[in-house]
Design a protein around this nucleic acid. Structure first.
Lengths: 145, 145
DNA sequence: ATCGTTCTATTGCCAGAACAATTATATGAT
DNA sequence: ATCATATAATTGTTCTGGCAATAGAACGAT
């Protein structure tokens, strides 16, 4: 029988590191009542506004229901608004409020702190290599969805 | 203003790869009504039985409430049983049922298939290096909990 | 123009996960 | 032995996230 150590399995390592990263961000953002996932949506809007929920779902790699519910929360908190989509009345376009735009200047440095802490003592090259491997794994599992 | 691309951020890459890996496992296990997280608990029990919920929580890096609820589900499905803990009547000891033990022979190959698919075309050395980086990140964030 | 298909947003349901709080037991100091 | 403290299991609440299903709008073929 092959000897197996769960502590060294890819899935376990991946999941526990991801969880800790999310929690670190969660705590950093606690004062602003934002979760890492909500922040991820804002991240996309800081790059480009006026996108549909569907596009945001694709950008953030979540399904539509999850995205829709997160948008509702962000709207309740006053970070975003929705406008009619002149090209398709099934959907609408998401825009940042002034609060949503201003949040960038606060949240960016906080996220940066977490990133710095997370990657302390890791060479930039090694980090990029690791990210590349993760992306390869992501693409490899494309067909398994 | 610094140019930022969310697609290249560590958190995003980590999260989306982890999600896809979990989903791949979820689909592989679908016929057996087991989630990747429940499988992770069984993984620990296949190495060592007779552990407390608290110990299992530590081993799987989940908090106690999450672990307790997962154990309830595994027990309902007939994979595990609980015995009194002679050393501490606050807790109890978790054991596998025969169904739980037999599941190993079915689930292991399935998980192995996913792992193979996930790491296709990736050198063993590179994979180990990436895991090492992930573990470093995990340790770096120890203090942020 | 109409009908069937496709697509978008949405709701319902369930599992995982974090945190807070509660209960019961164990432990340590006195 | 007693009392305060610590620990284990548990419950409640909230958010994320997957899948299924639905309503409504768009679109394509005829």
């Amino acid at each position: 029988m092959k000897k197996v150590n769960p502590d060294n399995s890819l899935g376990f390592i991946l999941n526990r590191t991801n969880t800790r990263m999310k929690n670190a961000l969660l705590h950093k953002f606690r004062d602003y009542d934002l979760t890492p996932e909500q922040w991820a949506v804002l991240n996309r809007l800081w790059v480009k506004e006026g996108v549909t929920p569907k596009e945001l779902a694709d950008l953030t790699c979540k399904d539509q229901p999850t995205t829709v519910r997160m948008l509702a929360k962000l709207q309740n908190k006053g970070y975003i608004t929705r406008e009619v989509n002149p090209e398709d009345s099934r959907s609408f376009l998401i825009y940042l409020t002034s609060k949503g735009r201003e949040a960038k200047d606060i949240l960016f440095p906080l996220a940066f702190e977490v990133l710095n802490e997370a990657t302390r003592g890791i060479e930039a090259e090694q980090l990029e290599a690791a990210k590349s491997i993760l992306n390869q794994i992501y693409r490899n599992l494309e067909s398994q969805r």
